[in-house]
């Protein structure tokens, strides 16, 4: 993490905090079921839902805290929360 003398904080630098290690469960996206309705992206409190190269939604595991909101709001059951074993 970079310090800037005389500047309290640079914009958007919270991206340096990788909050993904808080997680116990992680969302797994089923790209075959995903219709790209954007609900998970809209409701993610981080925000850490991104659109992958195939045009389907996925998660940035660097920041995902595993709250499970995306799996709860997904109307197509395309997201499953699974226990993450490290």
């Amino acid at each position: 993490m970079k310090f800037y003398p005389g500047v309290p904080a640079m914009p958007g630098t919270s991206l340096d905090n990788h909050t993904g290690n808080w997680r116990t469960q992680k969302p797994v996206f089923d790209h075959a079921k995903c219709t790209a309705c954007e609900l998970c992206e809209q409701y993610c409190p981080e925000p850490c839902i991104l659109v992958a190269d195939d045009g389907k939604f996925d998660v940035d595991l660097d920041y995902c805290k595993g709250c499970g909101i995306c799996a709860e709001v997904c109307p197509f059951d395309a997201i499953k929360m699974v226990l993450e074993l490290k």
């Binding site: 990788h18 409190p45 940035d60 709250c67 909101i69």
Partner: peptide
């Protein structure tokens, strides 16, 4: 508003 903030998981 960027990720990496330290709100609890599921923060409204």
């Amino acid at each position: 508003f960027t990720a990496g903030h330290t709100a609890c998981a599921g923060c409204g």
